[in-house]
Amino acid sequence: MAERHILVVSHTGRPETLDAAATVCRALVDGGVVPVVPAEDVALVREHLPGIRVETLDEVQLDGLELVIVLGGDGTILRAAELARRSSAPLLGINLGHVGFLAEAERESLEESVRRALDRDYQIEERMTLAVRVKVDTQVVYETWALNEATVEKASRERMLEVVIEVDGRPLSSFGCDGVVMSTPTGSTAYSFSAGGPIVWPSLDAMLLVPLSAHALFARPLVVGPESVFAVEVLDRTQGTGVLWCDGRRTWDLPRGARVIVRRSGTPVRVARLHQGPFTDRLVKKFNLPVTGWRGPADGEGRAS
C-alpha cells in the first residue's frame, strides 16, 4: 500500500503553534500517515518531535500530497496555498490566529479535525483564484496568481499613484489614488472589505475592483462576471512608481507605463470543508455581528433551498 503524505504548515513564530504542529504530526504518525513540513520549518518542528519521522516538502512529490493541514490564521493559510499551488491537495485550515476567515475549524477542535483528516471525512470546495500579468509596452515582465487579491499600490507614502482603470478592454476612469484592489469572492472579506468593498458569497463566481482613497467623483467598487478582465495602467504622469502585491506575499515593482492585467485563473484553490453551514453564519461568528431579536420566518420562507 502506498504511503499517505499530509503537509503540515504552521506559524513557526509562535511557540503555541509549534506545539500544535507537533501534536498534529504525532497524531498523523499514529494514524499511519507521513507528516511533511516545509524545508524552512523542519529544524524547528523536529526539535519538538525527537525520534518522529518527518519529511520535508523537498523530499516529497507535490502530486503525492493528500491534504494540507494549516495551523494559524489567514496569513498562514495563504502561505500554505502558495506552497501547495502545483498540488491538487485541499487545504484544511485550523484557526490559531485571530479572525481566521479562511479556516474551517478552531483551536478547541484540533484533535477532532485531525481525526477526520485521517478518515478522509471532509468535502472539497473549490475557490476561485486570479491570474495576474504585468506588461511594460508589449513585453510580459511578470506573472503570478492570487487567492485573495492583487493590489496595485503607490510605492512612496508621499506620492499619489495616477492610474486608469480598464474593464474588458475598454477604459472606465482615471484618477489619482493610493491604489486599486482586485479581489476574488474569497478575498472580499480581506483587504477589499477594509477598503469599503462589498462582501461577496464564495459560491458566486465574480471579481471585485475597489479603489483605495481615490481622488475622483466616480470611484465606486465594481463587481463583474468571471469572464471579465481588469487592467490597471500606471500613467506616465505619476510622480513616483507603483508596486504590485498579491495576497500580501508576492510583489513586483511597477514603473510608469506598466500595465497590470487580472483575470480568472484556470487553477482554483481546493479547500477541505468539515462543516456545510451557511456562509451567513460564518460572517456572524467571525465578525461577532449582533443578531439579537431575530425571530426568523415562521413558515420557513426565505431559507436557501
Rank of each mutant, 00 (worst) to 15 (best):
L78Q: 00
L130V: 01
V33D: 09
A150I: 03
V68Q: 03
R127M: 10
S87Q: 03
E59I: 05
V60R: 07
F101P: 01
A81M: 03
D30Q: 13
Y142A: 10
V114D: 02
L161C: 02
R127S: 10
V134M: 09
G93R: 07
E66F: 04
D121G: 10
H98I: 00
L147H: 05
V36P: 08
V70P: 00
R120G: 12
V141H: 01
A89K: 00
P50G: 15
E166Q: 13
G31W: 03
L62F: 10
V45S: 07
P171D: 11
V68Y: 02
R85W: 12
Y122Q: 03
D30K: 12
L71V: 10
W145C: 12
T76R: 00
L49M: 06
E158P: 15
S109K: 06
R157T: 14
D119C: 03
L62V: 09
V141Q: 02
I77Q: 01
V99T: 07
L161K: 03
G97L: 04
I124N: 14
I52R: 11
G73W: 00
G51S: 05
V167D: 09
G97K: 02
R157L: 15
T129Y: 05
R120F: 02
L62I: 11
L62H: 04
T138N: 10
D168H: 12
K135V: 14
D30M: 08
D168I: 05
G75F: 01
T76E: 00
D74C: 03
A117M: 08
V99P: 12
N95L: 05
I165D: 13
A146L: 04
L92T: 08
V132H: 11
Q61N: 09
E162D: 15
A39Q: 10
E59S: 10
R86A: 15
V34T: 11
R115Y: 04
G32M: 00
P38C: 09
R120D: 13
P171K: 08
S87F: 04
A105Q: 15
V141E: 06
N95C: 04
G169R: 09
P38Q: 13
A80T: 00
V136C: 01
E126N: 09
Y122E: 07
V163Y: 03
V134C: 08
R170G: 14
A117C: 10
E47L: 05
Y142E: 15
V36I: 12
P50D: 15
L102P: 11
V163P: 05
V33N: 03
Q61F: 04
V70A: 02
G64D: 14
V134T: 13
E112P: 14
V167Y: 01
R85N: 04
R170Q: 15
A81N: 07
V70T: 07
P90A: 08
V140L: 15
V99C: 05
V54W: 06
G64F: 03
V54S: 13
D137N: 14
G32S: 06
D58L: 13
I124Q: 12
R115G: 06
L71R: 11
T56K: 03
V60N: 08
E108W: 08
S109N: 09
Y122W: 13
R85D: 08
D121I: 09
I165G: 12
G72H: 00
D168T: 07
R127V: 04
E108N: 06
V136M: 06
N148I: 05
E82H: 06
V164H: 07
I69P: 01
